[in-house]
Design a protein around this nucleic acid. Structure first.
Lengths: 236, 236
DNA sequence: TAAGATTTGTGCGTATGTATA
DNA sequence: TTATACATACGCACAAATCTT
C-alpha cells in the first residue's frame, strides 16, 4: 500500500469533480457500481470515499435512489445587526417570506420574560416561512408587545419585513441582545413545512431584539433546515 | 372549551412540576394512564400535553419504556473569548477532556486556508471528547501549525488544556475570529463516542482562533450533542 | 395497483500491509 | 523477534428502499 489510502484519492477526485461543477447541487452521482468500474476498485472502496464525503456534508445518500450532491448552504450572519433580507442578499440569494399566521394572544411565560411583560399581556405573533431562492430555509415565530406596536400585524401583512414594520412604529434601528442556538430533529409539522424528511436536524435560534434604549421590541424563534444554512458569528 | 385548551393547563402543570424538581432530569414521568387518571382526562389529552413538551425538548418518550425528563442543557457561550473550562465552570459543571488521538500530519486544504499555511504543511492535531459532569458533551478536533508550536502535543498530553498549551508557547492570549455553526445527524462513530442514538442531531462549530497580532493559532471543529448544550451569543 | 429492475445498506469471509506492545 | 491489533481492499450475497413499467 502507498503512503495514503486508495479511497482518499477517490474522495479527492470526486470532491474536485463536484467543485468544478461536473456534478451540480441536487444532482445524482454515478452509481457506486459505475464509480467502482471507473476507478478500477471494489465497490466497498468507493463506498468508503462516499462515506467520508457524507461525513463532511458534501453529499448524502438515499437507499434505493442514489448519492446526491448537497446544496451549498446559505451563510447566515448572526450578530448585533441581524437582518434576514440583508443576510440573504449578501449571499446572493433571493429572500422571501410567506405568512403562515398572524394573531394576537396572551404572552407565555417565556415570551413575557423576554419582552419584560407580565404573563398573559397581549402580544402580536407573526409566524411564517423564510425562503431562499424559492426553497424553504426556515420557520419563524416573531412576538411583539401589542401595546407598543398596535398596528404591526397590518404592516406585516403588507410587506412581511420586520424591519419595515418596526420602522413604521418609530423604531428606526434595533439590535440583537442575545441569541441561543440549539438543534433538534424535525417533527412531522416542521418537516412538512420545510419540505424535508422527518428526523432531519434543525437549527433553532432564540433571539431578543432591543431598541436603542435597550427595551425589547421583538422575541424571535427560528427553525432553520440545517443542511441549507450555516450560521456565522464574528468576522470571517 | 374555556379560553385555552385543557391540554395546555396539563402541560403547564407538568412543566412546573419538572421545574420544581418533582421529576429530575433523566427520570421517568408517571405513565400516560396514571397522568390521565390524576388529571381526570382522557389519555389522548395527556398525550397532547406530552407531545408539546417533547416539541419543546423538555421531555422525550421511548416506546415501551416511558416518558423521560431531558437533562438541562449546558449553556455554552460563544464569543471572542471562548474557553471550554471557563464556560462549563460558569454553568456550574465539572469540565474534563479525554484524549482520543494526538498526531502530526499534513494540513488539508480547509485547514491550510484557515491557518494561512500551504496544503500539506505539517500540523499537530488534537482529537478528543469534552465531558460535562462526567457525561460526554462534545467531540473536538483542534489543529495547530507545527512549526510555530513544535511541542504542543506534549503539553496537551500533560494537561489537555488548549489555553495552557498555547501559553507554554508564548501565546498569553487568543481570541476567536469567527465561528460557523451547522447541524447534522450523528453518524455511528459520533453516536458511539457521545453515547447517544444514531441520527440524533449534533451542533457543529468551526472556529478560528488568532493571537493578539491576528495570526491564526488554532483551527477547531467541535461536535456537540445537541440536547446537552445551548450555544449562546451576545449578552443574556 | 402490482411486478420487476435498480441502487444503496449490511454482513461475512479472506487477504495484506502497517503500527504497536 | 514475535504477537496482536488495526486499517485497507476485494469478493459475494442478501436486505431494504426506490424507481420504472
Amino acid at each position: 500500500m502507498g503512503r495514503s489510502a486508495l479511497w482518499t484519492a477517490i474522495r479527492d477526485t470526486l470532491v474536485r469533480d463536484i467543485g468544478e461543477g461536473h456534478y451540480a447541487p441536487g444532482q445524482r452521482l454515478p452509481t457506486e457500481a459505475q464509480l467502482a468500474e471507473r476507478f478500477g476498485v471494489n465497490r466497498h472502496t468507493v463506498r468508503r470515499a462516499i462515506a467520508d464525503m457524507a461525513d463532511q456534508n458534501i453529499v448524502f445518500s438515499r437507499r434505493g435512489a442514489g448519492v446526491f450532491v448537497r446544496h451549498i448552504p446559505t451563510p447566515y450572519r448572526i450578530g448585533r445587526r441581524t437582518r434576514f433580507r440583508q443576510n440573504l442578499a449578501a449571499a446572493g440569494r433571493v429572500a422571501e417570506r410567506r405568512i403562515l399566521s398572524l394573531e394576537t394572544r396572551g404572552a407565555s411565560a417565556q415570551e413575557a420574560k423576554a419582552l419584560r411583560l407580565a404573563k398573559g399581556d397581549a402580544v402580536h405573533v407573526y409566524e411564517g416561512i423564510s425562503l431562499s431562492d424559492g426553497a424553504p430555509l426556515a420557520l419563524f415565530c416573531s412576538v411583539f408587545p401589542a401595546d407598543r406596536f398596535p398596528k404591526i400585524l397590518e404592516h406585516l401583512t403588507e410587506n412581511g419585513s420586520v424591519t419595515a414594520a418596526l420602522a413604521a412604529h418609530g423604531v428606526s434601528d434595533y439590535t440583537r441582545k442575545s441569541t441561543e442556538i440549539t438543534a433538534k430533529a424535525a417533527s412531522k409539522t416542521h418537516a412538512t413545512l420545510l419540505e424535508l424528511p422527518v428526523g432531519d436536524p434543525l437549527l433553532r435560534t432564540v433571539a431578543i431584539n432591543i431598541d436603542s434604549a435597550g427595551k425589547p421590541v421583538e422575541f424571535g424563534r427560528t427553525w432553520f433546515a440545517a443542511d441549507r444554512v450555516t450560521l456565522m458569528t464574528g468576522d470571517a
